[in-house]
Design a protein around this nucleic acid. Structure first.
Length: 206
DNA sequence: CAACCGATCACCT
DNA sequence: GGTGATCGGTTGC
């Protein structure tokens, strides 16, 4: 992560989830702790379009669980799945509309050893690519690597300078984006709403 | 208040 | 490529 990384603007997320998803590739998720800073580059995302998207949590309407989705853009929507894992989304579209982006995989950038510890992989041989892939190459894994949980992080503003969970931009430029169907869903599974950095080794599927 | 289901992962063959 | 673990959120009785 380069030192000149800066927070994304609110307007970035106040747009169609498909645009936001595409443009989020290459951006950074940053976890700020007292003595450490962990960061990963976004290499895989999925767009969830809102109430009309049958695969989206927003399709269930307003519930306590998904309240963040209807709030202002740029906030963390963190939910618990399969009784085991958390998943991180970032809300988009203006308040009243429920789009979001699921962050599916990160390329570890800084705080690698801390991520390995959080993942329970203390003996990892870094920085072999084979082992780096174990850190954050999936939505549940990246939450564990960055200690993202619903009690701690749900509804957090990811664009605030004071936040300990942020989304930032540096001078990295994505060369080519590939689009596929979303993974792990049954409804609206045919839509091409998963975006990955073409050729990147850190996406969730080889 | 009981039952069902899932935007996953790790481990197996 | 296939499958079991595991439990909060939601729905239906």
């Amino acid at each position: 992560m380069t030192p000149d990384a800066k927070l994304l603007r609110r307007a970035f997320f106040n747009r169609d989830p498909r645009i936001v998803a595409h443009e989020l590739l290459g951006k950074l998720i940053v976890r700020r702790e007292a003595r450490k800073q962990l960061a990963g580059r976004i290499v895989e995302v999925e767009a969830y379009l809102g109430a009309g998207d049958l695969a989206a949590h927003a399709a269930a309407g307003h519930t306590p669980r998904n309240a963040v989705l209807w709030g202002p853009p740029g906030h963390a929507y963190v939910y618990f799945i399969y009784g085991v894992h958390y998943c991180l989304n970032i809300s988009c579209l203006p308040a009243g509309e429920a789009g979001c982006i699921l962050i599916r995989a990160l390329e570890p950038v800084s705080g690698l050893r801390n991520m390995a510890e959080a993942r329970g992989l203390a003996d990892l041989e870094l920085p072999s690519v084979r082992d780096l892939r174990k850190l954050a190459s999936g939505p549940g894994k990246l939450c564990e690597a960055l200690s993202i949980t619903r009690p701690r992080d749900n509804a957090k503003d990811m664009l605030s300078p004071k936040s300990d969970l942020q989304v930032m931009s540096d001078d990295f430029r994505v060369q080519e984006v590939a689009v596929t169907q979303r993974i792990g869903i049954t409804k609206a599974a045919e839509l091409p709403l998963r975006y990955v950095i073409a050729g990147n080794s850190f996406v969730s599927k080889k």
